[in-house]
Simulated assay, not measured.
Amino acid sequence: MSDAILCRFEAARSIVRDAADLAMSMRPASGGPTGTQKSAQDWLTEADGAVEALISTRIGALFPQDGFQGEEEGRTRTGRLRWVVDPIDGTSNFARGRNRWCVSLGLLEDDLPVAGIIQAPALNETYTAVRGRGAFLNGRPIHASPVDDTRSAMIEMGWSNRVPAGVFEDKVATMLRLGAMPRSGGSGALALADVACGRLDGYLEMVINIWDVAAALVILDEAGARTSPFVRDGGLERGITILAAAPRIADDLAAALDVPLA
C-alpha cells in the first residue's frame, strides 16, 4: 500500500479518536430515546451532525484534494481518494444511552476500499485495517471464525424499515433451519467487525448503505471473511444487501439465504 494511504490512515486514527471522544461527551443518559425520529426506528441525534462535521473539517484541512461523503451531509467533496463516514452507527442504541454504537470511517481509492477504522468508545474497542497489512482489534491481529458447521454458527441480521414485510422473518427462519443462532444488535458496522474478529459467524442486512460498510469491507477482507460483492453490485450509489461470513460456512449460508458471494 502506498505511503499516501498509510499517511492518511495514521492521520485518520487520531481524527476518529477525537470524534469518538466528542460522541461520548454528547451521549445521552440511559433511558430515552433522545433525538429526532426520521422514520420507524431511524434516529438522528445532535451528535451525528457534530461528529460528521468534525471529521469532515479535519480531513478537509489535511487532505483538501480528497473526496468526502457522510451519512448526514452526503457527498460534499470529490476526489480519486474518497473518505466515507458514518458518524454514529447504531444511533438507536446511542440515543438510549446504550454502548453498542461506533464511529466508522473508511477510505476508498477509486472503487476499492483501502483502509478502515471503526471505533466503539463505550466498548473501548477500535478495529483497524489497511489493505495488504492485516486487520486488528485494539492493535492485535484478528481473523474470521473457524466454524465449519452452520449448527455451531451465530448469525446476526440487521433490521431496516426499507425491507418489505416478511423478509426479515423469512431470513431468520432460514437461519434457524440451518441450526444457527440468530442475533440482532443494532449496529451494522459493529456486526461486520464482529464477523471479522470471529465473535459472529455471519451478518446479513438486506438494505445497507456505503457509509455503514466502507470501513468494515477492508477489515473483513484482511481478516479472511467472505462477503457479497457490495461494490460491484452498486453499493457505492444506493442501499443494497450485504452478507459477510466465516469462510468455512460462507457457501452454505449464501446458498440458503439466496445472496451471492464475491
Rank of each mutant, 00 (worst) to 15 (best):
E73A: 15
G74Y: 11
R80L: 10
R8C: 12
L261C: 03
P229L: 06
G132D: 05
A189M: 06
P113I: 08
G90K: 01
L257K: 01
E10T: 08
V85F: 07
Q119G: 00
R8P: 00
T76L: 11
D148L: 04
R140V: 12
I219N: 01
D149L: 08
A23T: 04
P260W: 10
S30K: 13
I55R: 01
V130M: 05
A223Q: 12
K38Q: 14
I118Q: 04
V114T: 02
M1H: 14
G198H: 07
D258T: 07
R133F: 05
R151G: 13
L204G: 10
Y203F: 15
A223H: 02
D21S: 11
R13L: 14
P64A: 10
L81K: 05
R58S: 13
T57R: 13
I249D: 01
R151K: 15
L176A: 12
A144R: 03
L192D: 02
G239M: 05
I219T: 08
N99P: 12
S104G: 05
F9C: 03
D148P: 01
D194F: 08
T78Q: 14
M154Q: 09
R82V: 12
T78Y: 05
P260L: 13
N161M: 11
R100Y: 15
A246E: 08
T78L: 14
V51S: 06
S30Y: 09
V114M: 10
D48Y: 09
Q69I: 09
A29T: 11
T34F: 10
I88F: 04
V84S: 04
A254L: 02
P121F: 02
I117F: 03
R162V: 04
G49S: 09
I88H: 07
L105N: 02
R183G: 02
L253R: 02
T76W: 06
I219V: 13
M206H: 10
W159I: 14
V259W: 08
M175Y: 01
I208C: 10
A191G: 14
A29D: 11
G234H: 06
A4D: 14
F136Y: 14
Q41Y: 13
A254V: 02
S104Q: 00
E222W: 04
V207A: 13
I155C: 05
I219F: 05
P182I: 02
E222D: 09
L217H: 07
P247S: 11
C7R: 14
R100K: 10
E10D: 15
S39Q: 11
I59Q: 05
L190H: 03
V172H: 01
L261P: 02
I242N: 06
D3M: 06
G224I: 07
D194S: 15
P64N: 03
G224M: 12
A40Y: 12
F9P: 00
N93L: 01
V84D: 02
F230A: 10
D149W: 07
I142F: 07
D221G: 10
D86H: 03
P87K: 07
R13F: 00
V163A: 05
A180V: 05
E237M: 11
W159N: 00
M175V: 00
D170S: 14
A122S: 14
A153D: 05
E125I: 04
R199D: 06
L112H: 04
M157D: 01
T45D: 03
L178R: 09
V167N: 01
A19I: 07
D170M: 09
F230K: 00
A196F: 08
A223D: 09
V84E: 01
A61V: 03
M157Q: 15
I210F: 11
V103Q: 11
T78V: 04
R8A: 10
G239W: 07
A246V: 09
D18L: 03
